[in-house]
Measured scan of single mutants.
Amino acid sequence: MDVFMKGLSKAKEGVVAAAEKTKQGVAEAAGKTKEGVLYVGSKTKEGVVHGVATVAEKTKEQVTNVGGAVVTGVTAVAQKTVEGAGSIAAATGFVKKDQLGKNEEGAPQEGILEDMPVDPDNEAYEMPSEEGYQDYEPEA
Protein backbone atom coordinates (compact mmCIF):
# COMPACT_ATOMS: atom_id res chain seq x y z
CA MET A 1 0.00 0.00 0.00
CA ASP A 2 2.90 2.36 0.77
CA VAL A 3 4.34 1.77 -2.69
CA PHE A 4 0.98 2.61 -4.24
CA MET A 5 0.63 5.82 -2.17
CA LYS A 6 4.22 6.82 -2.94
CA GLY A 7 3.55 6.31 -6.65
CA LEU A 8 0.42 8.48 -6.49
CA SER A 9 2.34 11.15 -4.61
CA LYS A 10 5.05 11.23 -7.29
CA ALA A 11 2.42 11.40 -10.02
CA LYS A 12 0.76 14.31 -8.23
CA GLU A 13 4.11 16.12 -8.00
CA GLY A 14 4.56 15.61 -11.74
CA VAL A 15 1.14 17.05 -12.51
CA VAL A 16 1.82 20.05 -10.27
CA ALA A 17 5.19 20.63 -11.97
CA ALA A 18 3.60 20.39 -15.43
CA ALA A 19 0.85 22.82 -14.44
CA GLU A 20 3.44 25.26 -13.14
CA LYS A 21 5.42 25.07 -16.41
CA THR A 22 2.22 25.66 -18.40
CA LYS A 23 1.36 28.63 -16.19
CA GLN A 24 4.87 30.02 -16.70
CA GLY A 25 4.57 29.59 -20.48
CA VAL A 26 1.25 31.42 -20.57
CA ALA A 27 2.72 34.24 -18.47
CA GLU A 28 5.68 34.52 -20.87
CA ALA A 29 3.36 34.56 -23.88
CA ALA A 30 1.26 37.29 -22.27
CA GLY A 31 4.39 39.30 -21.53
CA LYS A 32 5.60 39.02 -25.12
CA THR A 33 2.15 39.99 -26.38
CA LYS A 34 2.20 43.07 -24.15
CA GLU A 35 5.67 43.93 -25.46
CA GLY A 36 4.42 43.64 -29.00
CA VAL A 37 1.36 45.81 -28.38
CA LEU A 38 3.52 48.51 -26.78
CA TYR A 39 5.84 48.25 -29.77
CA VAL A 40 2.90 48.80 -32.13
CA GLY A 41 1.79 51.84 -30.13
CA SER A 42 5.20 53.46 -30.51
CA LYS A 43 5.44 53.02 -34.28
CA THR A 44 4.69 55.66 -36.87
CA LYS A 45 2.14 55.29 -39.66
CA GLU A 46 4.61 53.40 -41.87
CA GLY A 47 5.66 51.00 -39.15
CA VAL A 48 2.31 50.00 -37.70
CA VAL A 49 1.55 47.25 -40.17
CA HIS A 50 4.97 45.71 -39.57
CA GLY A 51 4.46 46.12 -35.81
CA VAL A 52 1.19 44.17 -35.87
CA ALA A 53 2.99 41.34 -37.67
CA THR A 54 5.70 41.47 -34.98
CA VAL A 55 3.06 41.06 -32.25
CA ALA A 56 1.67 38.01 -33.99
CA GLU A 57 5.11 36.51 -34.54
CA LYS A 58 6.28 37.04 -30.93
CA THR A 59 3.07 35.54 -29.63
CA LYS A 60 3.39 32.58 -31.98
CA GLU A 61 6.97 31.99 -30.77
CA GLN A 62 5.85 31.92 -27.16
CA VAL A 63 2.85 29.71 -27.86
CA THR A 64 5.25 26.93 -28.82
CA ASN A 65 6.43 26.91 -25.18
CA VAL A 66 2.94 26.20 -23.89
CA GLY A 67 1.50 22.71 -24.04
CA GLY A 68 -1.90 21.08 -24.20
CA ALA A 69 -5.25 22.78 -24.43
CA VAL A 70 -3.78 26.07 -23.24
CA VAL A 71 -2.28 26.57 -26.71
CA THR A 72 -5.70 26.99 -28.26
CA GLY A 73 -6.71 29.64 -25.71
CA VAL A 74 -3.43 31.53 -25.98
CA THR A 75 -3.67 31.53 -29.77
CA ALA A 76 -7.20 32.95 -29.62
CA VAL A 77 -6.15 35.62 -27.12
CA ALA A 78 -3.12 36.52 -29.23
CA GLN A 79 -5.24 36.86 -32.38
CA LYS A 80 -7.73 39.11 -30.58
CA THR A 81 -4.84 41.17 -29.20
CA VAL A 82 -3.41 41.65 -32.68
CA GLU A 83 -6.84 42.62 -34.02
CA GLY A 84 -7.26 45.06 -31.12
CA ALA A 85 -3.83 46.57 -31.76
CA GLY A 86 -4.80 47.14 -35.38
CA SER A 87 -8.07 48.77 -34.34
CA ILE A 88 -6.21 51.05 -31.93
CA ALA A 89 -3.75 51.99 -34.67
CA ALA A 90 -6.64 52.84 -37.02
CA ALA A 91 -8.52 54.79 -34.35
CA THR A 92 -5.49 56.90 -33.48
CA GLY A 93 -4.78 57.67 -37.12
CA PHE A 94 -1.46 55.81 -37.33
CA VAL A 95 -2.76 53.72 -40.20
CA LYS A 96 -5.79 53.66 -42.51
CA LYS A 97 -8.36 50.93 -41.95
CA ASP A 98 -7.78 49.54 -45.45
CA GLN A 99 -4.11 48.93 -44.55
CA LEU A 100 -4.95 46.69 -41.60
CA GLY A 101 -4.44 42.98 -42.13
CA LYS A 102 -1.75 43.45 -44.80
CA ASN A 103 1.99 43.19 -44.52
CA GLU A 104 4.48 45.61 -46.04
CA GLU A 105 4.12 44.02 -49.49
CA GLY A 106 0.32 44.39 -49.33
CA ALA A 107 -0.37 40.67 -48.90
CA PRO A 108 -3.10 39.69 -46.43
CA GLN A 109 -1.89 38.70 -42.96
CA GLU A 110 -5.01 36.85 -41.91
CA GLY A 111 -4.42 33.26 -40.97
CA ILE A 112 -1.00 33.75 -39.38
CA LEU A 113 -2.10 31.94 -36.25
CA GLU A 114 -5.09 30.02 -37.58
CA ASP A 115 -2.95 27.84 -39.87
CA MET A 116 -0.64 26.81 -37.04
CA PRO A 117 -1.12 23.07 -36.36
CA VAL A 118 -2.41 22.69 -32.81
CA ASP A 119 -3.66 19.58 -31.05
CA PRO A 120 -4.92 20.18 -27.49
CA ASP A 121 -4.48 16.48 -26.68
CA ASN A 122 -0.87 16.43 -27.96
CA GLU A 123 -1.66 13.29 -29.96
CA ALA A 124 -1.00 14.26 -33.58
CA TYR A 125 -0.36 17.30 -35.68
CA GLU A 126 -1.74 17.99 -39.12
CA MET A 127 -0.20 20.29 -41.67
CA PRO A 128 -2.23 23.34 -42.77
CA SER A 129 -4.37 22.92 -45.88
CA GLU A 130 -2.62 23.24 -49.21
CA GLU A 131 -5.34 25.38 -50.81
CA GLY A 132 -3.15 28.48 -50.76
CA TYR A 133 -0.06 26.72 -52.12
CA GLN A 134 0.98 26.67 -55.77
CA ASP A 135 3.03 23.98 -57.44
CA TYR A 136 6.54 25.12 -58.19
CA GLU A 137 8.13 24.07 -61.43
CA PRO A 138 11.75 25.16 -61.88
CA GLU A 139 12.71 26.74 -65.15
CA ALA A 140 14.86 24.55 -67.41
Rank of each mutant, 00 (worst) to 15 (best):
M1Q: 00
M1E: 00
M1F: 00
D2K: 02
D2M: 04
D2H: 06
D2I: 02
V3N: 03
V3R: 15
F4D: 01
F4G: 00
M5H: 00
M5C: 01
G7H: 06
G7Q: 13
S9E: 08
S9H: 09
K10Y: 04
K10L: 14
K10M: 14
A11K: 00
A11M: 15
A11H: 00
A11I: 15
K12G: 03
K12M: 15
K12R: 14
K12W: 14
K12C: 13
K12F: 04
E13G: 06
E13R: 07
E13H: 02
E13W: 07
E13L: 01
G14A: 15
V15S: 00
V15Y: 15
V15K: 00
V15C: 04
V16E: 07
V16R: 09
V16L: 11
V16I: 14
A17Y: 03
A19C: 03
E20D: 06
K21W: 08
K21P: 00
K21G: 00
T22M: 08
T22R: 01
K23F: 14
Q24W: 08
Q24G: 03
Q24S: 09
Q24N: 07
G25W: 07
G25N: 04
V26C: 12
V26K: 00
A27S: 05
A27V: 07
E28T: 08
E28L: 08
E28Q: 10
A30I: 15
A30Q: 01
A30E: 00
G31N: 11
G31P: 00
G31C: 01
G31Q: 15
G31S: 15
G31K: 14
G31E: 07
K32R: 13
K32A: 12
T33E: 00
T33L: 09
T33V: 15
T33G: 04
K34G: 02
K34S: 01
K34D: 00
K34W: 15
E35F: 12
E35P: 01
E35L: 13
E35W: 11
E35R: 09
V37A: 05
V37K: 01
L38S: 03
Y39Q: 03
Y39G: 03
Y39D: 01
V40M: 12
G41V: 12
G41R: 09
G41Q: 07
G41W: 09
G41N: 03
S42T: 04
S42D: 03
T44F: 15
T44W: 15
K45M: 15
E46Q: 06
E46P: 04
E46G: 11
G47Q: 14
G47F: 14
G47T: 15
V48M: 15
V48T: 02
V48A: 04
V48F: 06
V48D: 00
V48E: 00
V49W: 12
V49P: 02
H50K: 10
H50Q: 13
H50N: 07
H50D: 07
H50I: 03
G51M: 14
G51H: 09
V52E: 00
V52G: 01
V52W: 13
V52M: 14
A53F: 13
A53G: 07
T54D: 01
T54N: 06
T54G: 07
V55F: 12
V55S: 01
V55Y: 12
A56M: 15
A56W: 13
A56R: 09
A56C: 09
A56G: 03
A56S: 08
E57T: 07
E57I: 11
K58S: 06
K58V: 10
K58P: 01
T59M: 02
T59W: 14
T59F: 15
K60M: 15
K60I: 10
Q62K: 13
Q62W: 07
V63G: 02
V63S: 02
V63M: 14
T64S: 09
T64P: 03
T64C: 11
N65Y: 09
N65I: 14
V66G: 02
G67S: 07
G67V: 09
G68D: 15
G68L: 08
A69W: 10
V70C: 05
V70M: 04
V71W: 15
V71F: 06
V71H: 03
T72P: 02
T72G: 10
G73V: 15
G73Y: 08
G73P: 02
V74I: 05
V74H: 01
V74P: 01
T75M: 06
T75E: 03
T75I: 04
T75S: 08
T75L: 14
T75V: 15
A76N: 11
A76E: 05
A76Q: 07
A76D: 02
V77R: 03
V77Q: 02
V77C: 07
A78T: 08
A78R: 09
A78G: 04
A78W: 14
A78E: 02
Q79H: 07
Q79K: 13
Q79A: 09
K80D: 02
K80S: 09
K80C: 04
T81S: 08
V82W: 15
V82G: 02
V82Q: 05
V82H: 05
E83M: 10
G84M: 15
G84T: 13
A85C: 13
A85T: 06
A85N: 03
A85K: 02
A85F: 12
G86Q: 14
G86S: 11
G86V: 14
S87T: 06
S87I: 10
S87D: 07
I88T: 03
I88K: 03
I88V: 04
I88E: 02
I88S: 03
A89K: 02
A90K: 05
A90Q: 11
A91V: 09
A91Y: 14
A91F: 13
A91P: 03
A91R: 05
T92K: 02
G93A: 14
F94V: 03
F94N: 05
V95Y: 08
V95T: 09
K96E: 11
K96I: 03
K97E: 03
K97I: 14
K97G: 11
K97A: 11
D98L: 12
D98E: 11
Q99P: 02
L100K: 06
L100F: 02
K102G: 04
N103V: 13
N103C: 08
N103T: 12
E104I: 04
E104C: 02
E105Q: 12
E105D: 09
G106N: 05
A107Y: 11
A107W: 10
A107K: 10
A107D: 06
A107H: 06
P108I: 04
P108V: 06
P108W: 07
Q109S: 12
Q109V: 06
Q109H: 08
E110L: 12
E110V: 10
G111M: 15
I112R: 05
I112D: 05
I112N: 11
I112Y: 05
I112G: 08
E114W: 10
E114S: 07
D115M: 09
D115V: 08
M116Y: 12
P117E: 02
P117G: 11
P117L: 04
P117K: 10
V118I: 04
V118F: 10
V118D: 10
V118C: 12
D119L: 08
D119N: 05
P120T: 08
P120L: 08
P120V: 05
D121Y: 13
D121P: 08
D121A: 10
N122C: 04
N122H: 03
N122D: 10
N122I: 11
E123G: 14
E123L: 08
E123Q: 11
E123Y: 10
E123N: 10
A124D: 14
Y125T: 09
Y125P: 11
Y125C: 06
Y125V: 12
E126N: 11
E126Q: 03
E126I: 12
E126T: 06
M127H: 08
M127R: 05
P128D: 11
S129Q: 06
S129P: 13
E130S: 03
E130F: 10
E130I: 06
E130G: 09
E131Y: 06
E131G: 04
E131W: 03
G132I: 13
G132E: 11
G132Y: 10
Y133W: 11
Q134C: 13
Q134K: 13
D135G: 07
D135R: 09
D135A: 04
D135M: 09
D135F: 07
D135H: 07
D135I: 10
P138F: 07
P138L: 04
E139W: 06
E139T: 03
A140H: 05
A140G: 14
A140L: 11
